[in-house]
Amino acid sequence: MPVITYDKQPYACEDGETVLQCLTRHGVAIPSSCESGVCQTCLMRGVQGRPPAAAQQGLKDTLQAQHYFMACVCEPGEDMEVVLAGADVTHLLEAEVMAKSALNDDILRILLKPAQPFDYKAGQFINLYRPDGVVRSYSLASVPRQDECLELHVRVLPGGNMSTWVRDEMHPGDTVAIEGPVGDCFYVPGRPEQPILLVGTGTGLAPLWGVLRDALAQGHRGQIHLFHGSYSTAGLYLVDELRALEEAHDNFIYTPCADEPGDDMNAGVTCERADLAALAALPDLKSWRIYLCGHPDMVDVMKKKAFLAGASLSDIYTDPFVYSMTSS
């Protein structure tokens, strides 16, 4: 049973328990959000003892070398002394809320202006802090050299801690704390002829809206297919903007998809799940570059199917919007 030392106190870690679970069980508050090793909110550093490689997956090489790790996926193999990552590595900064508007019945568009220069790539994500310490991740739909503000698409979930707060209590003019950017789901220049497939469900469109416009702005010449899916046509958004982009660019094809046929079914909406519609239209994905964002089940299943359809694993970029079932 490894012992975790934090703030000079030793805590016994049970078999199969993560550092986050161990410390939380003993009443030590450690910030966390996804609890799946994605958002890096629970970033800690091993002062003594090495974290297992699995707890460092996705971290920058420089952070790995300094024994930073994510507490929520760290099942320690040995005794460790740990500290919380400092603000210098987590890049916590202030941002002003510039605008808030509705994209559809339950998705809000938020524009933020960071107080300091913020170097990011379209499609990465930030962690948004509520004043009481609740943290959630939101993807960046904006494109650095094109858009002045950071743009978020926030889906309001019934009873959602962060999203209902964003709807009810976050107003233009307010200052919020953000951290990031995090993630590797973004457009990489080079290979401008490579065909690109973008598949997103719900607000999974946020990073894709960024990636798409970034790729076009950087002169991507290969075909870009976007399949955006929602439960119904009412859940789709940015439809007119995407159709306009389709008009303006010969190499961009937009396929909105809805699981259920609605009475209000617009012309041109495919009545099929976005991932299935994509696979039906593009059965051979050999040499394609693929971005999958949104519902974690869709992302996991589609990743495997895209690989089986011929895509190379190194060409598949994913952003599963994982959430903790035990979220506070």
Partner: peptide, 25 residues
């Protein structure tokens, strides 16, 4: 590795043993 892994995942005789979520691992 890509070719072999793809064959294994597509092979119903054995793919049950390889059902990990984390494909990179």
């Amino acid at each position: 590795v890509d070719i072999f892994y793809r064959k294994v995942l597509a092979d119903d005789r054995i793919n049950g043993f390889f059902e990990g979520v984390d494909m990179e691992k």
